[in-house]
Simulated scan of single mutants.
Amino acid sequence: MTPEETVRAYYDALRAGEALAPFFVESPATVKVGISERLVGYAEIANALREQTRTTEDWSVQSHDLQVVERDGAAAVADAVSLSWYDAEAFAERSFETRWSGTLLPGEDGWAFAGMHVSVGTDLDSGIDR
């Protein structure tokens, strides 16, 4: 599987409510920054993703601009993603326009995230990189 296929498979797994931890490098140095958390280390990421899967459902994940660059045995990814889901604990729909970036590394089982960052823009965002 290519890095792009890995990212798309991650989106599919999120939609389907499948396990997400296998998409991350099993290392204490792996980092996942989400909309409302910063997780460091594979164990912390795996625990948080299991809890997320347990407490959410009906994910919609719409990729708008996936970019992938492979170089020197690694891959960098960036995307603009519309996310929505149902928060089963709060009984509420959640929806965000998000920005994703990350680094993938190859391993025995294919590519995996060594770092992932998901953020939400602000009203001050003009769409111009500074």
Rank of each mutant, 00 (worst) to 15 (best):
G102V: 12
L83T: 14
Y42K: 00
Y86N: 10
W59T: 09
E57M: 09
V68R: 01
S82L: 12
H64E: 10
A75S: 10
E44T: 15
A21Q: 01
R15V: 14
E70Y: 07
W59H: 14
V25M: 10
V61H: 09
V118L: 14
E93Y: 04
V33K: 02
E44K: 14
D65T: 09
D109R: 12
W59I: 06
G102T: 08
E4S: 13
L104A: 05
G41P: 00
K32S: 13
I128S: 12
L39T: 11
D109C: 00
A13R: 09
V31T: 06
V40P: 00
S119A: 11
G41Q: 05
S101W: 01
L49Q: 13
H117I: 06
R130C: 10
D72L: 06
S27M: 11
F96S: 10
D79Q: 01
L83N: 10
K32V: 15
A9M: 06
E70I: 06
V120A: 14
A114W: 03
G17R: 00
A80R: 07
G127N: 04
V31Y: 01
Y86Q: 07
G17W: 02
L49V: 14
G127M: 02
A16Y: 02
Q52G: 04
S63M: 03
T103E: 14
E97K: 11
E89V: 07
R94N: 05
F113N: 00
F24P: 01
A78M: 13
F23A: 05
G121C: 03
L104I: 06
V25R: 03
G102Q: 09
L105N: 03
W111L: 13
D12H: 13
L20I: 15
V118N: 03
A16G: 14
A16I: 04
S82T: 15
F23T: 11
S84E: 05
I128N: 09
D12Q: 15
P3Q: 08
R15M: 05
T56P: 01
D12M: 03
V68Q: 01
G121E: 08
T103K: 05
V118M: 06
I45V: 15
R8M: 08
F24W: 12
V61D: 02
W85F: 15
S119P: 01
W59V: 07
A114I: 07
A88T: 15
S95T: 11
I128R: 11
V61W: 11
A29M: 09
N47D: 15
R130M: 12
E26S: 12
F23Q: 02
T30N: 01
E26M: 03
E108N: 05
D125L: 10
I45D: 03
A19M: 04
R38I: 13
D123R: 13
D58V: 02
D129K: 07
T122S: 14
P106D: 11
L66N: 01
E70W: 01
S60L: 14
P28T: 06
